[in-house]
């Protein structure tokens, strides 16, 4: 039976601005990534010491997920389907640099893009489906199709999917919580519209 799914809520983090389906949450002109991430951490009053040892990509993913999961109920079987263009290249470069002196195991751990899926799973106690895809640009079609295949086959009841990219200090985060609850229809079109819409 064909079921319809909806985008329950979404979050965007880009150019110092953070917004969700209801409003703008945070706005900063801070250009330094680490300082920006710390200011969002403080703003959210996130008490999670593990955050500070994470790389930039994981920090962005934790902040985005925290914003979504604070305002929305979520199931422990929520599948994580993430994608980006730069993989873990930001941290790969840092690790490569470290090999000139002492190769850093703390950096090496973060040289895989799916590490953020593990970080989210640990923080929110999700023992669920994971997939990390790499694409040239935001691939709404794949995210929609793959999410739908997991939802319709009963492998999961909800999906957290989206784009989490970080390169040269520039970040672009767009995460969506997908469920059968009625809200924005879950389609390739609505994903594209939300991703490409300018923050007001």
């Amino acid at each position: 039976m064909q079921k319809d799914f909806s985008i329950k809520d979404w979050v965007k983090i880009k150019d110092g601005k953070i917004s969700n389906s209801k409003n703008e949450i945070f706005n900063s002109s801070e250009k330094n990534l680490d300082v920006f991430l710390k200011s969002v951490y403080d703003f959210l009053e996130l008490k999670y010491p593990k955050f500070h040892k994470m790389d930039g990509l994981s920090k962005l993913g934790i902040l985005g997920t925290e914003i979504l999961f604070r305002e929305n109920s979520f199931s422990t079987d929520t599948a994580l389907i993430f994608s980006n263009n730069s993989s873990s290249l930001e941290t790969d470069r840092q690790f490569q640099e470290s090999t000139k002196t002492f190769a850093s195991p703390a950096l090496f751990v973060y040289t895989l893009p799916n590490i953020i899926l593990g970080e989210i799973s640990i923080k929110f106690k999700l023992q669920s489906e994971n997939a990390f895809f790499i694409a040239e640009s935001f691939n709404a079609e794949l995210l929609k199709n793959y999410s739908e295949s997991l939802l319709t086959s009963g492998k999961t009841s909800e999906v957290l999917c989206g784009w989490l990219n970080l390169e040269n200090g520039e970040y672009d985060v767009f995460l969506c919580l997908i469920s059968s609850e009625i809200n924005i229809p879950f389609s390739e079109e609505s994903l594209k519209n939300l991703y490409f819409a300018e923050n007001d």
């Binding site: 994580l80 593990g118 799973s121 640990i122 023992q127 669920s128 489906e129 997939a131």
Partner: peptide
Amino acid sequence: DATVNDANHIS
């Protein structure tokens, strides 16, 4: 087929 995360440790 199935994948499940441990939700335990990253490395």
